[in-house]
Design a protein around this nucleic acid. Structure first.
Lengths: 151, 151
DNA sequence: CTAACTGGTCAAGGCGGTTGACCATGGAGA
DNA sequence: TCTCCATGGTCAACCGCCTTGACCAGTTAG
């Protein structure tokens, strides 16, 4: 295998992290601009787990890679701010199903719009084709499993 | 302009964040595996600012996007763990120049090696050419200015 | 010389995470 | 069926990292 120069690897790594950080900020700003306040990026990762049809606090804890206490606390916050609600779990009297409210769903749509906006900016620079290539290549090197905020 | 589907934008965004998170973890693990413990990803961002020839705590604070108190505290930690040291500033008696020790420099090299290792894994999947394309495209959409840990 | 500015520190507090202990329900085996 | 352990959730205490606010020492401009 042809060795990769360390400096090239660092350029690529630093650039990737810079783009990821910028994207995170753009999505966050876009969500705020659409009227959803008091949320942090970590909440976005929670939303992606809750969206399909709800999840338990423990599910969420595994998904986010934190303790169930921390996940439960995050759910408290989402409930308090009107983005989610707890319902009795249909199959397990111990568990509670956390589901997004209408406002929570609206917020996920806002995040999607903000992400689309950021991607359009990339399309303006690289063109539709290259962004498609970028997506495919990233998909091929992406890790399996849940997306966790990690740094 | 051809509209970007929201779902495609979300796929790309989520994948990019997943790859970035995975890269961060790989670099961190690689640094630990090379014998440098007690460091967090945030320290890596600090190292990139200190490496060229030192910086003041206030410089570091601007670079990281935190208060000078937080930056100073981070420097305390790096000093305590042997990665950096404070020297009197040659031009300003108020300021102190924070520079990396030999151990700190060795640690940055370890981070570079870990990053190169991660990139080699990508080369194994995509091939040298596509990784080069990836780097160039990311460079073109990367934000100007300092790399801050942002999420 | 003085006044404003700037680098750094000390002190107190907040927020989000952790560990540890505990309760209630669920599920599998004697 | 009864017992025992595993599991979902909560409460409480604590810790790490960051913030705000006040302050001191040195610098710089008028």
């Amino acid at each position: 295998m042809v060795p990769v120069q360390n400096s090239e690897a660092m350029t690529l790594s630093a650039t990737l992290l810079a783009v990821a950080g910028d994207l995170t900020r753009r999505i966050h700003d876009g969500v705020v601009a659409r009227g959803f306040e008091g949320l942090r990026p970590a909440h976005g990762f929670a939303f992606t787990r809750l969206a399909p049809g709800g999840a338990t606090a423990t599910d969420l804890a595994v998904h986010l890679g934190v303790t169930k206490q921390a996940a439960s606390q995050l759910v408290d916050e989402l409930v308090r701010k009107g983005y989610a609600e707890r319902r009795p779990h249909p199959d397990d009297a111990r568990a509670r199903l956390v589901v997004l409210t209408d406002r929570g769903l609206a917020c996920t749509r806002a995040a999607e719009e903000a992400a689309a906006e950021a991607v359009r900016a990339w399309v303006a620079v690289l063109g539709e084709t290259e962004v498609g290539v970028l997506r495919e290549n990233l998909l091929r090197i992406a890790p399996r499993g849940p997306v966790r905020p990690a740094w």
